[in-house]
Amino acid sequence: MGVPFEALIPYAIMLGMFGVTGGALSKLRHMQNGGKRGRHSVDQWDRVLMERDKRLTGFLRGQSDRAEAPDGFELNNPWKVEKRFM
């Protein structure tokens, strides 16, 4: 005796929704990385360089080939430095 196809419709819907959700999350992660593939095993040095790239370009994964920093970058320092000697 065969299985009625009406019993398989909920499973097909659930499988389809899992596929749509996975595709949407993958596309969202791709867009958040600036169109690049996701990074794995990011250490502290990579985080520092990615923060620098974000300050330079506005994107966490963006990179610039300009030799000179844009205007205002000299004031965009993440380190808080104490002025002891003047």
Rank of each mutant, 00 (worst) to 15 (best):
K80L: 11
K27G: 11
G72N: 02
R47K: 12
M50Y: 06
M17P: 02
L28V: 13
W79E: 06
P10V: 03
T57P: 05
E74Q: 06
Q44W: 07
E68I: 04
N77A: 05
G72H: 10
R61N: 09
K27E: 12
L60W: 07
R52I: 08
V48H: 12
V81H: 03
H30I: 06
G58I: 00
A12E: 09
M17G: 07
S64T: 09
A24K: 12
T21Y: 02
A24G: 14
E6H: 06
A12I: 04
Q63W: 07
D53P: 01
S64K: 07
V20E: 03
S41P: 00
G16F: 10
P10Q: 04
W45P: 00
D71S: 10
A12M: 07
L75T: 12
L25V: 15
R84M: 08
V81A: 06
H30M: 10
K36Q: 10
D71N: 09
Q44Y: 10
V81T: 06
M50D: 13
A7S: 09
F73E: 14
L8G: 03
D53K: 08
V42W: 00
A12C: 03
K83M: 12
M50I: 02
R29L: 13
D46M: 11
H30T: 05
P10I: 00
S41D: 15
S26T: 15
G58F: 01
D43P: 04
R61W: 00
G23K: 02
R39I: 02
L8R: 05
K54C: 12
L75G: 09
I9Y: 01
W45Y: 08
E68F: 08
S26Y: 11
L75H: 13
A7G: 00
G62V: 02
Q32G: 08
L75E: 12
D71W: 05
E51F: 07
R39N: 03
T57V: 08
G22F: 12
D53Q: 10
R52Q: 03
F85D: 11
M50A: 08
A24Y: 08
G22W: 04
F5E: 00
Y11D: 03
V81Y: 06
R29M: 15
Q44A: 13
K36T: 07
R47S: 13
G23P: 02
W45C: 09
N77T: 11
L28N: 15
H30V: 01
R61D: 08
T57A: 04
G16W: 02
V48T: 10
D53E: 06
I13W: 00
M17N: 05
G35K: 01
E82G: 11
M17A: 08
G35R: 06
S26L: 14
G16Q: 02
E51I: 15
